[in-house]
Design a protein around this nucleic acid. Structure first.
Lengths: 275, 275
DNA sequence: GCGTTTCCATACCGCCAAGGTATCGCTGCC
DNA sequence: GGCAGCGATACCTTGGCGGTATGGAAACGC
């Protein structure tokens, strides 16, 4: 199977519409139809149920969508990492924007002072995107937060565990409590994280993509949030903090793709575990 | 990058010889030369240092070899799993030949008696090959033994831990001891496992690929081995068993690729953890 | 019920690029 | 210096990829 065929298949599987998929791919619709049926013939598998009115995935088609996306990410990663290996040396670290600020700063300065360390580019991404960056080669290593992010398919080391606190706009009814329980947050406007990635509890409040955004919404009284207590260091004084007694503990981990074991990466991981 | 280009590159990188790589690929040498230099031009990266006498990988070339192999495995896995999804339903489980016999039998019968279970094909492979099978889609799930096999890139559940014993031909000087230490095995002909995969301690004895082979060599007095104690159940009576006090504990785990979460697989894993 | 629209499949054509053969050019060796 | 080994280059042929035009089936409107 060629990556071109896979890209075509994924486009059709995502759009469920040959015309739209074709224009997304920048080709005409007939060659796309042909390419797909050729792929089906070569695999000996029917990938789509199609009537002239609707296109839908078959069960094997769904398998190919899952596996094919992973394969395309792997190919993309190979290409990107090869290019990077020939250009500027250095490591790309992905982290959620606004999260892990303290530990990230400490890690960077600790690693920088090691002998033989290289440059570390930091990519601040949206919540849950670190996995994708790591998978498609845009990043070499990432800071994740269990149990929200998934370490599926990566090697990792745990860096620390912390409890969570509730962030409220100053003056909120609960802001004077010395502690609360998760059940107290049931009716509060907790943020809705993008559902595609990560495993964040669903909220009823506004949709947010990163912590900076979230903190601003809390200040404005439009949201509240349960976050790891290390976020205290970045709070403005118009946000109140209340410990949540029974929130799940959050573990910060440093994760990397299992086959990439460069010396630089090993040094960074070592520096991280020594924090 | 197309998978064809990747396959060509990997062939040349492994052979370090355009002629041999070309014949391995079933094409003539000139198109291969052209394809590689075209790949280099498109990537903007020199992948090989070549003189008319020798071909060797550059640093970025080594990166592409590592990442490219993983990518090709992922593509192959996508293809194979799609084909399998359309044919016979069922799960393919990989296990080392001759190892994990007892736990494997228990697992199969436990899962088979569950409601809604499907057929499980068992692939007995050489030591250390389970990872490769899991990675390229020939298997859906595997039994691994830590700390020898690597779970890198897989999800897994631990099934049990056991200590190790030394297997000796009957009549060997050490066979009457009630226990020994690793240091006592220093001069013994421990087997040499294929070094490509897994993390087995290097031995000085004959080269072996699976446990059946190994047991036979022990009977013949040509080797001794340190194995998990559950192997006792398969021993013939011409092999003596001595506990090794300070050998590393062996953990049997059931592992699967992180993105494949079918209901059947979940059932098998659940049955395994309940053993 | 018939025209219309919407989509995917088919037919046909042109062109690029992949593969083959022949040969060159460099290098190390007898 | 002749020769053998090996990668690069030159040149040709062709398969297949992409494009346009069109067919044909299904839903929809009036």
């Amino acid at each position: 199977m060629e990556t071109r065929e896979l890209r075509y298949f994924v486009a059709v599987a995502e759009e469920l519409h040959f015309g739209r998929a074709a224009s997304r791919l920048g080709i005409a619709q007939p060659p796309l139809s042909r390419a797909i049926s050729q792929l089906e013939r070569r695999l000996g598998v029917e990938l789509f149920h199609r009537t002239s009115r609707a296109v839908e995935l078959t069960a094997p088609g769904a398998v190919l969508l899952r596996e094919g996306r992973a394969a395309l990410d792997a190919v993309e990663a190979a290409e990107r990492r090869t290019r990077r290996a020939s250009e500027t040396p250095g490591i790309v670290l992905a982290s959620k924007a606004g999260a892990a600020g303290e530990i990230l700063a400490k890690l960077l300065s600790a690693y920088a002072s090691e002998p033989g360390s290289t440059a570390v580019d930091v990519v601040l991404c949206r919540v849950g995107e670190q996995e994708k960056l790591l998978r498609d080669g845009r990043a070499d290593v990432a800071l994740l937060h269990l149990p929200f992010d998934s370490t599926a398919g990566f090697d990792y080391e745990e860096l620390g565990t912390e409890s969570q606190v509730l962030l409220l706009p100053l003056g909120h009814a609960l802001s004077t409590r010395s502690s609360i329980r998760m059940s107290d947050t049931a009716d509060l406007p907790l943020p809705r994280w993008p559902s595609r990635m990560g495993d964040y509890p669903p909220g009823t409040g506004p949709e947010v993509h990163d912590h900076t955004q979230l903190l601003q919404l809390i200040s404005l009284g439009r949201a509240v949030a349960v976050l790891p207590e290390s976020c205290r260091s970045q709070l403005t004084d118009d946000i109140a903090v209340v410990p949540v007694l029974d929130a799940p503990l959050v573990t910060t981990v440093i994760a990397w793709p299992p086959h990439s074991r460069s010396r630089e990466l090993a040094g960074l991981v070592l520096a991280a575990t020594r924090l």
